[in-house]
Design a protein around this nucleic acid. Sequence first.
RNA 1: GGAGGGGUGGCAGAGCGGUUGAAUGCACCGGUCUUGAAAACCGGCGUAGGCUAAUAACCUACCCAGGGUUCGAAUCCCUGCCCCUCCGCCA
Length: 427
Amino acid sequence: MLDPRLLRSDPDQLQQGLAKRGISLDLASLQSLDEKRRHWQQEMERLQSERNAQAKKIGKAKAAGEDVAPLLAAVSDLGDRLDAAKASAAEAQDAFQDTWLGLPNIPQSDVPAGENESENVEIRRWGTPKTFDFDVEDHVTLGERDARHGMAMDFAAATKLTGSRFVVMRGQMARLHRALIQFMLDEHTLQHGYEEVYVPYMVNDDSLMGTGQLPKFSEDLFKLEGEKPYYLIPTAEVPVTNLLRGEIVAAEQLPIQYACHTPCFRSEAGSHGRDTRGMIRQHQFEKVELVQFVHPKKSDEALVSLTQHAENILQKLELPYRVMQLCGGDMGASAARTIDLEVWLPSQECYREISSCSNFEDYQARRMQARWRNPETGKPELLHTLNGSGLAIGRTLVALLENGQQADGRVVLPEVLRPYLGGQIEL
RNA sequence: GGAGGGGUGGCAGAGCGGUUGAAUGCACCGGUCUUGAAAACCGGCGUAGGCUAAUAACCUACCCAGGGUUCGAAUCCCUGCCCCUCCGCCA
């Protein structure tokens, strides 16, 4: 949520910022909603103040043993007037809130305008895509080929068990998948200073509201049937960021850095027909997520280091990638700035997203009321929140298989994984 | 699943339907005293919204959440959520 005061203090910044996302804001109607809301709030509070004064008077009169009948008569219609004002105030508040809560974050000043990913800007590349002197296979072919213990990567089995966009892995493939999780968590906790957390994989709607998935993007989520209205998490961002919902932390505790592995569940509504083959786009996938809560003045540098932490994983895994600055229209609604990491996939001969690192500034924190106490003012102030994938496990597995493939069908894995694979680095 | 108890400020813990945003203690901040510290004493000490030049004053709301009764609710009623104890079941 944006600061509602922005509407009065700097409407131009609001309008121009959202324009970068391709949103043309009807400033006049929004301002009128805001004025209505404040007008009715003032009217309601005026009546409440009157009621309090009268009630106090009655109390005193009664205590003094006086006749309160005339006083009661004087307030007879106050209740009705107050109820009417309350109703109008609530209505005006809802009308404003509906619109306001739906507004995405304002992109930072140097975020390029643009409608979709075609207008993202490449910042840099790392590594050189390998040239193969044989026809490369994609990860599906490579994964399904190992028939020693049945298929190592078995999409048909998953379809039988559940449906499309799921996978079953066996043997060394399942082990490699697990190894990647361990490796990444170890790197982030031991090398990058993150604290590991374990969290619920189901959350309530308050949490989804806090990070911005609700109320607008419910179609992307799996909602559970049952008496509790829980949702499967679409990313660890939701439970981990909400750890600080409604909290006020001490300045010395900052920055707070959490690393968390969870499965992620996404309905992928609206992406029918996209990436239907293989593990690129699944309803269920594993991810190691990095989440930071920082001093509001330090979130820009925090995004740089968080991105570097994700890049370090790719570099240690020897996977070529490029770094993309997302344009306004391609960023998630809550983000003020997003940097994507895209890994090279030989079978597709292109770079594909494997990590998305965002600075949300105070947008999520305001929704969640996640704050720190500023020693200079003694007052609670909003934190800045950030997160990034470090990395998406399924896509990392895909990248390793495809980039490590050999002419004879073997897959050679990077040296760093050896300790996690019982000394082996080959599939 | 069954039976009972409870949710008040950072913590502990009072609170008859009426001047209670809420006693008291602890913690915390400032001051006096002290060479310094401790102790003692004095003062301060919640959050959000509105109004405003103001992070001043003032107004409003908030004692788990949402409804209700009343001129007036932390206090009475209903619903929900959460916590605790006992029994059953269980990884």
